[in-house]
Write a protein that binds this DNA or RNA. Structure first.
Length: 492
RNA sequence: GGCCCCAUAGUCUAGCGGUUAGGACGUUGCCCUCUCACGGCAGUAACACGGGUUCGAAUCCCGUUGGGGCUGCCA
C-alpha cells in the first residue's frame, strides 16, 4: 500500500443518516481520518442519503455533531441526494454501451425464482429475462407495470461486461487487511443499479461517488466485502480503475451482538454522559481489533512493543498501519475503555483538561465558580489532583461539588463519634500554619489525646468533610478547602 | 440454498515451522495506605475440533463446527 501513496490520498466516511452514529461508525470514521492524517491526505464526509424515506436531516446533524465532538474534521462534504445528476451521467454511459438494461420484473417474480433456486440447492442468480427484450416487449411490460403502479429498474449487464473484458470472469482485488480476494462474477448476477422507485442503489451511487470524488482508499466495514466485486464490475464497465479497498473488522456490542443504532451502549450520547474523553474513546477504538507496534532498540537489541495508550491523535496516526488491522471482529470492552480513559486523563495537562471539560462536557460554570472561590493556583492544583484520582470526567465533576460552600452533607442515620468531632474541631481551630503536614500532626495528636486510633480520626474527619468514607486523600482535600471551610464543616 | 469473510484465555491482542505460547483489560492474593483508586509484586486463564504436510505446527493445506456478511431495491 505504501508504494502508491505518493499522490494525494483521499479517503471518505460515508454514513447513512438513518440513525445515530454508533461506536462502530466512529471507528470506521477514525481509521479513515487517521489514515488521511498520516499521509497528509483529505478526509471527506459524504452523507449517503439515497434512501429518501429513512434518511433524516436530524440524523445528519447528529452525525456531524458527534464527529465534531471527537474532533474528526472533514475537508470536504457531500450529500448523495445532491449528486443524482452525476450518477445519472454514468448510468447513461452504461446504457449507451449496452452495459445496463431496464428490468420489468416484479418483486413477486424475483422472490419466487429465488425460492425455487434455494429449494433446489442452486445458487440464485437473476435469470436475465429483461436483458434482451425487443422494444415491443418492453413497451408491453412497462405498461403492465405501470398499471400496477410500479416502475422498471435498471440492472448491470454482467454478460456484456465480461464480453468487454473476459478476465473479469473472476473479480479479484487486494484488500489491504484481508489480502487477495476473488469472486466469480457469474455467481453475482445482474444486480440493481437504479431501483423501481427511481433511486440509485447503494452499490452504484457509492462506487460512482468514490470514483468521481477521487477517493484513493476505501476503508470501511467488512460487511461490504461482498459488495466490492459488484462495485469493481461497475467501474470496470465504465473503463475505470478501482480504488484500494481496506475492509476493517466490525465492532460488536458487549453482548457480542452486532451493534445497533438503537442500542444505548453503542450510542455516542452514552459515552458523553459517562464522562469518557473523546480522545480516550478514539484511543480505545483504534486499539481494538488492531495493533500499533513501536520499534525501538535498546543496547543494540531490537525491541517491538504494542502501543496502547497514545498522548494524542497525531501519534496514533503516525503509528497506524492499516495492514495490522485484524480481519476478525471485536467485542466492546467497557472496562478497557475505562482504563484507557483513566490513563488519558492522568496524561492530560490540567489546562487541557479544563478546555475539554468546558468545550465537551458543559462544565464552564462550575469551573468558573471553582476558579473564583479558590484562586488561579489552587484552581489548577485541584484539577490536577482530581484528574489523577478518577477514571471519568463524570466522577471528577461529581467530586468538584465538595469544594463548594453550598455542599450539603447528609449525616442523618449515620453513626459517628461526636466527641472526636469536637476534639478535631478544637484542634483545627488552633492551627496556625495550615498545610498537609500540620494537619497530619494534629490528627495524630487528637488520636492520642482522645485514645482513638489514627484511622478513626481520619474516618470521622472524612465523614464531616466529604460526607463519605472513601475518596481521594483527605489531607489534600482539606489543604485545598482551607482552615475556614474545614472548621465550618466540623462545626455542624 | 449459493458465494464470501473470520476463529489464541471472559474480552482485546502478540505470534508469521522449533517460544516455559508474550502483553493489556478483568479477576484473585499480597505490599503501599486514613478510605477508595493509583502504583508495585505474585497468581489465574487460551491455540474450536478432526485430518494431513513436516524430524517438528498456534503457525502451511483440507475438512468439520461455530460466528458474521452479501444474495431485490438498507448502507
Amino acid at each position: 500500500m505504501e508504494e502508491n501513496l505518493v499522490n494525494g490520498i483521499r479517503v471518505r466516511f460515508a454514513p447513512s443518516p438513518t440513525g445515530n452514529l454508533h461506536l462502530g461508525g466512529v471507528r470506521t470514521a477514525l481509521f479513515n481520518y487517521i489514515f488521511a492524517l498520516k499521509y497528509s491526505g483529505k478526509f471527506i464526509l459524504r452523507i449517503d442519503d439515497t434512501d429518501r424515506v429513512r434518511s433524516k436531516k436530524e440524523y445528519e446533524d447528529v452525525i456531524k455533531d458527534d464527529l465534531r465532538w471527537f474532533e474528526i474534521k472533514w475537508d470536504e462534504f457531500y450529500r448523495q441526494s445532491e449528486r443524482a445528476f452525476i450518477y445519472e451521467k454514468y448510468l447513461n454511459t452504461l446504457k449507451e454501451n449496452g452495459l445496463a438494461y431496464e428490468c420489468f420484473c416484479t418483486e413477486e417474480e424475483i422472490l419466487k425464482s429465488k425460492e425455487i433456486a434455494i429449494k433446489s440447492k442452486k445458487p440464485y442468480i437473476y435469470n436475465g429475462r429483461c436483458a434482451n427484450l425487443s422494444s415491443g416487449e418492453k413497451e408491453k411490460l412497462s405498461f403492465s407495470l405501470k398499471e400496477k403502479g410500479l416502475y422498471s429498474s435498471i440492472r448491470l449487464n454482467i454478460a456484456q461486461v465480461l464480453r468487454m473484458d473476459p478476465s473479469f470472469y473472476s473479480v479479484e482485488f487486494n484488500d489491504a487487511v484481508h489480502g487477495h480476494l476473488s469472486f466469480n462474477s457469474k455467481l453475482i448476477g445482474d444486480f440493481i443499479l437504479k431501483t423501481e422507485d427511481n433511486r440509485f442503489a447503494y452499490n452504484f451511487a457509492s462506487i460512482i461517488d468514490d470514483y468521481d470524488l477521487g477517493i484513493t482508499h476505501v476503508i470501511r466495514g467488512e460487511d461490504h466485502i461482498s459488495n466490492t466485486p459488484k462495485q469493481i464490475l461497475i467501474l470496470k464497465a465504465l473503463g475505470k480503475e478501482p480504488p484500494v479497498f481496506a475492509h476493517i473488522s466490525l465492532l460488536y456490542g458487549k453482548d457480542g451482538k452486532i451493534m445497533s443504532k438503537r442500542d444505548a451502549a453503542s450510542n455516542i450520547k452514552y459515552y458523553k454522559e459517562e464522562g469518557y474523553l473523546p480522545e480516550a474513546v478514539l484511543n480505545y477504538l483504534a486499539v481494538t481489533g488492531n495493533t500499533f507496534t513501536v520499534h525501538s532498540s535498546k543496547d543494540g537489541k531490537k525491541e517491538i512493543f504494542e502501543k496502547e495508550i497514545f498522548s494524542n491523535i497525531l501519534e496514533m496516526a503516525d503509528l497506524l498501519d492499516i495492514k495490522k488491522a485484524k480481519g476478525s471482529s471485536a467485542v466492546l470492552n467497557e472496562d478497557k475503555l475505562r482504563h484507557i480513559n483513566e490513563k488519558r486523563l492522568a496524561l492530560m495537562p490540567a489546562e487541557q483538561l479544563i478546555k475539554v471539560l468546558t468545550e465537551k462536557f458543559q462544565a464552564a460554570s462550575i469551573l468558573a465558580k471553582l476558579k473564583e472561590e479558590y484562586g488561579e493556583d489552587f484552581y489548577f492544583e485541584i484539577i490536577d489532583f482530581l484528574k489523577n484520582e478518577f477514571k471519568t470526567v463524570k466522577e471528577i465533576l461529581k467530586e468538584l461539588e465538595i469544594f463548594f460552600d453550598d455542599f450539603k452533607i447528609n449525616l442523618s442515620g449515620i453513626k459517628y463519634d461526636d466527641g472526636l468531632r469536637k476534639a478535631l474541631l478544637d484542634s483545627f481551630q488552633n492551627i496556625n500554619d495550615f498545610n498537609e503536614n500540620s494537619i497530619k500532626n494534629i490528627i495524630k495528636e487528637a488520636a492520642s489525646q482522645n485514645s482513638k486510633t489514627v484511622k478513626e480520626c481520619y474516618e470521622t474527619l472524612r465523614l464531616f468533610i466529604t460526607g463519605r468514607l472513601d475518596g481521594p486523600s483527605i489531607l489534600k482535600i482539606i489543604k485545598f478547602l482551607g482552615k475556614n471551610r474545614a472548621v465550618k464543616r466540623l462545626s455542624i
